[in-house]
Amino acid sequence: MKSLEELRAIRAKMQGKVGVRAENENQIRVVVGMATCGIASGARPVLTALSDAVQEQNLSEKISVTQTGCIGLCQYEPIVEVMEPGKEKVTYVKMTPEKALEVLRIHLLGGQVVTKYTLSAAQNNAK
């Protein structure tokens, strides 16, 4: 069995290395809908893929990934909202872990909205 005692070693290793990771004004906020509708449609792996990628690529200072409840657009779940300071909110719909990573690469890092996955694109297609 793996023991929680290993946390002591992690603590010792991280001593002094932990900076203040408080939310700052310039941070991009990425929010994943995690109510019944989101979870049933596959939001858990989307949330995990995003937060794992942000950690692996050391982006925690720039991007914060959090969860929220029902956004009210259940038929479009899993939904990921991107809130960038000074910019309009972008709502991505019917996300998968793969699409979410594409959003991370092209939008969050590259600065280009991935139009094909947005709510407005989905609504236009439905017309």
């Binding site: 290993e6 946390l7 002591r8 992690i10 991280m14 990771r21 937060s51 925690s60």
Partner: peptide
């Protein structure tokens, strides 16, 4: 064990939680 200043979302800690 970890102290209160280290967040569970720190990469080292969250990887440990997953493995545990």
């Amino acid at each position: 064990l970890l102290g209160h200043d280290i967040s569970f979302s720190e990469p080292e800690v969250s990887v440990f939680i997953k493995e545990y």
